[in-house]
Design a protein around this nucleic acid. Sequence first.
DNA 1: TAGGTATTGTATCTTTTTGATACAATAATA
DNA 2: TATTATTGTATCAAAAAGATACAATACCTA
Lengths: 247, 247
Amino acid sequence: MSMTNETGMKRPFTDGQDLLPGLSIDPVIFGFHEGQLKILLLRFRGMDAFALPGGFVHLSEDVDEAAARVLYERTGLREIYLDQFYTFGKRDRRDAGTQQTLLQGNGVELPNTHWLLQRFVSIGYYALIDFTKANPTPDPLSDSCGWHDLATLPPLIFDHTAMVYKALETLRKNLDDKLIGFALLPETFTMTDLQQLYETILGKPLQRTNFQRKILSLGILERLEKKMSGGAHKAPYLYRFISPATP
Amino acid sequence: MSMTNETGMKRPFTDGQDLLPGLSIDPVIFGFHEGQLKILLLRFRGMDAFALPGGFVHLSEDVDEAAARVLYERTGLREIYLDQFYTFGKRDRRDAGTQQTLLQGNGVELPNTHWLLQRFVSIGYYALIDFTKANPTPDPLSDSCGWHDLATLPPLIFDHTAMVYKALETLRKNLDDKLIGFALLPETFTMTDLQQLYETILGKPLQRTNFQRKILSLGILERLEKKMSGGAHKAPYLYRFISPATP
DNA sequence: TAGGTATTGTATCTTTTTGATACAATAATA
DNA sequence: TATTATTGTATCAAAAAGATACAATACCTA
C-alpha cells in the first residue's frame, strides 16, 4: 500500500470515515515502450524511494471499482485490463520509519492513533495499458508519477518491490492462456512488435518463424494492410487483435 | 467471510479490538475420499445454508498465519498445503438478512454499529489435506462441521459458493505445475488412486497408460512394494511422493 | 491346485506439437 | 536497377501426446 489518497492537497488526510479501514489497493501498471516493460511509479515529496500508485477503498465502492478508479486517477484511462493478483498481509509490511519520513516530507505530523498509521493489508492489482495513451498524473503526496524500466527498478518503499515481481510472475503465467499481451500494444502492430513484447515479458528469446506460426494458428489476429516505410526491406503486415469471443 | 470466530462460546463476540477491522479469511478446505472431491463446511445454529469455516485476523499475526490457525482450529492439522487464491471485495457481498438470521440462530442481537455488522472484505485461501487425517471441529457458532461433496454442494451463505468455485479453478490451474495433488492423498497410493484424483479435479477422464507414463516421467514418485489383496488381478505398486527439491 | 479373470505395467505405433533451417518475396535505398 | 534487410511460408527433424496391443500377475473358484 502507499500513502496515496484521492482527496486533494487541501485535505491531504481525511478522517478516513468513508474508507474501508486498514485496507489499501496497490496497482502495478504495466506499459511497453521501445522494447522495455515499464511500470508507473510515484515519488513522494522529500523521499528517495519510489512507490506504487496506491489508494484506498471507499465504503460506497467494490474493491474492484476502487482499483479501476485509482488507475483512472493516475493514467486518465478507463476500460483497461485490470486484475487482482495477490493480497499482501504481513503484519510488519509497512515499516514505521518509512511512514514517518513520508509524512515529514509532506510537512504532516499525525498521532500514532491516526488511521493512516495503523496496520494495512493491501490488495495487489495489475493493469496492462497502451503506453502511448497514458497520461501519468502524480497524486497529492507525490511530486512525480512516471514510467520506470522493470529491468532497472529503483528502490521502492515497504513491500512494493515484492509486489511488482509477484505481478510480473502473474503476467507471465497468464500471457498465453488469457491472451492479455495485446493490451500492452497499440490498436495495430506488426508481428515483430508482438514478438518483442513476448520476449520481454517472458525474459527469453523466441524463434521468429515458429512464433508467427503459433500466434497465427490461434486465429485471434486480423491481418490488415502492410506497414510501409519501415525500412529498406519487405514490409510487414499490420495486425489487429480480435477477441476469441467475437469471431 | 463467515461469522466464525475463535473466542469460544462464553465470549461469542469480542469487542473486535484485537482484530483487523473489516477483514476476514475464508479457507476452502479440500479433501478426497472414495473418488469424490470434498470440502469442509460449517452449519450455523438455526440456519439452513452452510458456510466456509472462516475466521478473522489478529493484530499480532500475518494474514497467512491467521489462515493457518483457522485451518488448524477446524481440522487439527498443521503444516498443510495452504495458499491464497483471491480476495473478495464486493460492497454488498454480505446480505443483511443472512447476517440477522445467523445472529438470531445463536440468540444474539447486535446494534447495527457493531464491528461484526460492518462491511467485510474476505481473503480466500484453499487448503489440501489428507481426508483420513482431518478431525472436523465446529466453531462456537456452528452445530456441525463436516465434509460435503463438491459435486452436490448445498446452498452456501453470502458469496461462499463463488469462493468455492474460484478455489477449484485455482486448484485445477496449479495441479500440474505446482504438483499439489499429492497433498490430497495418503502417504502412499497407487497409480490408479492418483489418476482418479486427477480425473475428479479436472472433471474429465484420462487415458490410463499415458497418464502413468507422464507422471512417472516427472521423476517425483518413489516406487514402493506392491499392494497385495486388491482383488483377483495383478497387484499395483504403491508410490510415495518425493519433492522435486529433494532428489 | 490349476485355469480363468480383471487389472496392471510397458512397448509400440500414430498423430500432433514444437523446434530448426531453408528460401523466395519485397519495400526502400543507393 | 541492383542491393539489402527483413518478412512470410514451406519443409525438414525432434519431442510430446494420444491410441492400441499385449504380456504379466494376484487372486478367485472350480
